[in-house]
Design a protein around this nucleic acid. Structure first.
Length: 298
DNA sequence: GCCCAGGGCTATC
DNA sequence: GATAGCCATGGG
């Protein structure tokens, strides 16, 4: 399992260098459509992404599949936030094996190919409110534009985080801040017909009508999904994505146009995702990545 | 101009 | 329960 090999400070920025990360791919993990707040940054490392989560600006840098360096984090931050966020406390070797063997021939072969293409992807444990709002924004939208809208929302209504003397980042807004923004304020961010959905979501959270902490600890997956679907504009798919990426519910199996497509073209039109059990959401993410990978490499 | 994007709501049958 | 329009916006 991942642990700290070295920690210190460069300039004013604390960092931790990790080893034992397994076959982690920072690039695939942050480029597979689950997270809209990180983007590639230049560094001395092989690959690095920077962004805000849990109110902190951090950079995740990587040179080999086994190491990750986190800038903007102390040892304590790693233990209390980033280990869980990056899913470094989860054994993906076992999960990958289970996914490869979950289906009967010939469909096991499709899953083997999907696992192989997706090697190194981890399901992040993102913040519940941010994740729910982000996937409301995602509906009938594409990934680059979702990122733009979320960034605009943070800049306009999130609290500033000073990175260094010349750079300011922004946290994701609180529910209260979005309620104060109102439907016009949210619409002005180019959210279109989703503005009223985001407002309804923020209102239900701010009023206590919907409690995301309770949903996190709710043991019944169906109940937690129905709770999220009480928000206007949150249907099966958005609720599943939020539960998978923001609430740790790995049995969720969101079906979007890409998953629909791969089921139609490579699984004979139907797929019983409960065969994957608690790994359904991870299998789904591999399928999503694989199908998009194939499309972009034709 | 068209079609599409990590969809869901509403009306109608 | 299924299906048909509709919803804002920008990129290809």
């Amino acid at each position: 399992m991942a642990d700290i090999k070295e920690s210190g400070i460069v300039g004013t920025v604390p960092f931790v260098k990790l080893g034992g990360c397994g076959n982690y791919s920072v690039q695939k993990t942050f480029d597979c459509g689950q997270c809209f707040r990180f983007s590639e940054v230049r560094s001395k490392h092989n690959y690095a992404v920077g962004g805000v989560a849990y109110g902190k600006y951090v950079i995740f840098a990587q040179d080999t599949p086994d190491d990750i360096t986190i800038y903007g984090a102390t040892d304590k931050d790693f233990e209390s936030i980033w280990k869980n966020y990056l899913a470094l406390n989860v054994d993906y070797d076992d999960i990958d094996r289970a996914i490869e063997n979950a289906l009967a021939p010939p469909y096991d072969c499709v899953m083997r190919a999907a696992v192989e293409a997706s090697r190194g992807i981890r399901i992040l444990r993102q913040e519940p409110f941010e994740t729910l709002c982000s996937f409301i924004i995602s509906q009938n939208n594409n990934i680059p534009r979702i990122k733009k809208i979320v960034a605009a929302m943070c800049e306009k209504y999130g609290s500033p985080i000073s990175v260094d003397s010349s750079k300011i980042e922004y946290a994701f807004p609180t529910a209260e801040a979005l309620v104060n923004a109102g439907e016009e304020g949210i619409f002005a961010l180019k959210t279109g017909f989703r503005a009223k959905y985001i407002l309804d979501c923020a209102e239900k959270i701010a009023s206590g009508n919907l409690n995301l902490n309770e949903i996190s600890t709710e043991s019944s997956y169906e109940k937690s999904k129905l709770s999220l679907m009480s928000v206007k504009g949150v249907g099966e798919k958005v609720a599943s994505c939020a539960l998978l990426f923001g609430f740790g519910k790995t049995e969720a199996f969101p079906i979007d146009v890409w998953i629909r497509r791969i089921i139609d073209t490579r699984f004979g039109g139907s797929l019983d995702h409960t065969l994957f059990g608690k790994n359904a959401g991870i299998a789904q993410q591999y399928m999503f990545y694989y199908e998009r990978y194939i499309q972009s490499h034709l």
